[in-house]
C-alpha cells in the first residue's frame, strides 16, 4: 500500500485549472521530486498534498485515508511543509522558531515540556544551527534560515516532508548541504521526501523518482534515467537540453544548450 496516493487530482486557481487529473503513488521512504517548467502546477500540487489547496476533483489519500478526513493538527503530525519563504518580520529567535514545530503535538495551552525542548535541540543539532539558537531569524543568511525551517519541520516529527524549492537562491555549497541533510534524514528516520525543484541536476542526483509536469498534466513519471532524456526535456521545457552521464556518479546530467549552439547542432545533424 502506498503512503501517498493521488487519484485523478485536478486543482484550480479561481476558474483556471492548473493541475489536471494527476494520478500518482509515493512509497514510504522514497525521495520524490516534482519538476517541470514555470507555471506547470508543481507548487500548487505540493500545496494540495499539504492540505493547503482545496481539491477540485479526485482524491488524495495519506496512509489510505482521504486528506480531507484529517483534522488540521493531525495532518500536521503526518506531514511537514518547508515553504519557499518564511516571514522573519517579528523577531522570534531560532530556538523559538524551531519549537513552533511542536505545535501540532501540544495541548490546549500550547506550553512545551522538557521533552519538546530536547527534540528541538536535537533537530537544531542535526541541521547544524544549534550555535544560532539565540539569534533572531532576520539576522541569518538564506542558507542558515533554510536550515532553521528544516529543523522546525524535523521537530514536527512527521513521516512526510514536503519541500518547495529548498535550494532556490542558495550557493552550491549550501545546496549540497541541504540535500545531504535530506539524504541523511531519509536514511536515519525513513522519512518520505517530496520536493519541488527547478534544479534538474540536484533532482537527478538525489531523487529516486521524478514527476515531470507540464501545463498541469503528467508528462512522465519514473526514475531519473527514464524521465531525464534529451528529447523529453527539450520538448517539455521548449528549449534545447542535452542529457549525458555524470562522469563520477553515472546519474543523468542535464546540460543547457544556448540557442545559437542548438541551431549549429541541428544543422550538423541535417547535413549528416
Amino acid at each position: 500500500m502506498s503512503l501517498i496516493d493521488l487519484r485523478a487530482v485536478s486543482l484550480q486557481y479561481g476558474p483556471r485549472q492548473v493541475v489536471r487529473r494527476v494520478s500518482l503513488q509515493i512509497e514510504q521512504g522514497e525521495f520524490f521530486a516534482i519538476i517541470g517548467p514555470n507555471g506547470a502546477g508543481k507548487t500548487t500540487l505540493l500545496k494540495a498534498l499539504s492540505g493547503l489547496h482545496p481539491l477540485h476533483e479526485g482524491t488524495i489519500r495519506i496512509r489510505q485515508r482521504p486528506i480531507d478526513d484529517y483534522a488540521k493538527k493531525e495532518l500536521a503530525r503526518s506531514l511537514a511543509l518547508v515553504p519557499q519563504q518564511v516571514d522573519a518580520g517579528f523577531p522570534f529567535t531560532v530556538a523559538e522558531t524551531v519549537l513552533m514545530g511542536r505545535y501540532p503535538h501540544l495541548g490546549l495551552l500550547a506550553v512545551e515540556s522538557k521533552r519538546d525542548l530536547e527534540l528541538a535541540r536535537q533537530a537544531m543539532e542535526f541541521t547544524e544551527v544549534l550555535h544560532l539558537a539565540g539569534r533572531r531569524l532576520g539576522q541569518l543568511s538564506g542558507g542558515e534560515r533554510q536550515r532553521v525551517i528544516i529543523a522546525r519541520a524535523i521537530c514536527q516529527q512527521s513521516q512526510i516532508l514536503l519541500l518547495d524549492e529548498p535550494t532556490a537562491s542558495l550557493d552550491p555549497a549550501h545546496q549540497l548541504r541541504i540535500m545531504d541533510l535530506m539524504e541523511r534524514l531519509r536514511h536515519r528516520e525513513q522519512v518520505t521526501i517530496v520536493m519541488v525543484s527547478h534544479d534538474l541536476n540536484l533532482a537527478a542526483t538525489y531523487a529516486d523518482r521524478l514527476l515531470l509536469l507540464k501545463d498541469g498534466l503528467v508528462e512522465k513519471v519514473g526514475p531519473p534515467r527514464e524521465v531525464l532524456t534529451s528529447e523529453q526535456l527539450s520538448q517539455s521545457y521548449g528549449c534545447t537540453l542535452m542529457v549525458d552521464d555524470h562522469p563520477q556518479l553515472g546519474t543523468p546530467r542535464v546540460n543547457l544548450v544556448p540557442e545559437k549552439a542548438a541551431a549549429a547542432i541541428n544543422r550538423d545533424r541535417e547535413s549528416l
Partner: peptide, 21 residues
C-alpha cells in the same frame, strides 16, 4: 489560548496552516 497560533501566524499564513493552525 490563541497565543501560540498567533505566534505561528506571524511566520506566514501558509506556514501556520501547514503546522495545524
Amino acid at each position: 489560548l490563541l497565543a501560540q497560533p498567533l505566534n505561528l501566524l506571524l511566520t506566514g499564513r501558509e506556514s501556520a496552516s501547514a503546522m495545524g493552525v
